[in-house]
Simulated assay, not measured.
Amino acid sequence: MDSVEVAGLRIRYRREGQGQPLVLLHGAYEDSRIWRRQLDALSDEFTVFAWDAPGCGGSDDPPPDFTGRQLGETLAGFLREAVPGRPHLLGLSMGSGIALELYRAHPSVPASLLLVSAYAGWAGSLPPEEVERRYAQVLAELDQPPEQFIPEWLPTLFTEHADPAAVEETSAIMADFHPAGMRALLNANARADYRDVLPAIAVPTLLLYGTRDVRSPLSVAREMNRQIPGSALVLIPDVGHMAPVEAPEAFTTEVRNFLRGLAG
């Protein structure tokens, strides 16, 4: 892995391939390893970057009072330091929120947005009581050993048809979370609301969801599509929240088709 320093934090990342830059932003409890399949499959056509967000993987933990704005600025700094040209940004779940945070302050940076299993922030897409339930759940988990709570997450991330090896791989990645890093990220973005950002998005935007996603369900997907001008909503049948892992071939095909359409 390579690394750059951004505002005093060491940010680790993976880079594969040659071509237009495509930056992959993972979700909560994950790191860049979750993109193993996409780093391999898309590197024939793109320079694919997958970062470890602050507090995840090999990257440094941010301070406890880290804010959502600072998270967006860290991504902006990472792009300046590591990524040549104007990148396509692909965010999964929490990663989509980080992409929206960046867009709020730096709308000229991304060439396009690919928002996967996305929210307009939890507070922008979910009822207040569900936001607080999720916040309290994760906060409690940070004091528990991973083997105690990760098995409870997996049925909310995958359908029963998912490849057991892929589920086990994801579980192992999640088990490597940083308690201090996740606590800082939770405080930075758990109550984020990007509803004001969506109507202002002026770059091509793909919204990609599994039809059986129980964490960011189709009602969230359709509202995102309604709010983002000109956005394309694509649904992958019978797939859950972790579409890039559960259905990597279908996922990669949709990403490739969208980006090729922009080039054409």
Results as ranks from 00 to 15, higher is better:
Y209C: 05
P244R: 06
S117A: 13
A99S: 06
R183M: 08
L22R: 02
S93N: 02
D143F: 14
N257Y: 15
Y119S: 06
R134D: 03
Q18F: 09
D176T: 12
T170Y: 09
T252V: 02
G97F: 02
P151Y: 02
D52E: 11
A99M: 05
V214C: 10
L142W: 10
L114S: 02
R86Y: 05
S216D: 07
N189C: 10
Y103H: 03
Q18V: 05
A50H: 02
R104V: 00
D52V: 08
A180S: 11
F66H: 09
M94W: 04
A247Q: 07
L262T: 10
P63Y: 04
G121E: 00
R215F: 05
P237V: 11
L235F: 12
D163M: 14
R256Q: 06
A175N: 10
D143K: 15
L100S: 01
E73T: 06
E101A: 09
L24Y: 04
A175H: 15
G57H: 07
L186E: 00
G58P: 12
L185R: 14
V234I: 13
A188V: 09
A166R: 15
A41H: 06
P237S: 12
A190K: 06
F49Q: 01
E249V: 09
A53N: 06
Q148V: 09
Y29D: 00
R133K: 15
S112P: 13
R12G: 08
S125L: 08
Q137H: 14
Y13A: 00
P110Y: 05
E30H: 14
R37W: 13
A82G: 07
A111Y: 08
T47E: 05
V167E: 01
D31G: 10
E132Y: 10
M94C: 03
I201L: 04
G240V: 05
L114I: 11
Y13E: 00
E30K: 08
R12Y: 12
G58T: 03
D2L: 14
P107Q: 02
A250I: 09
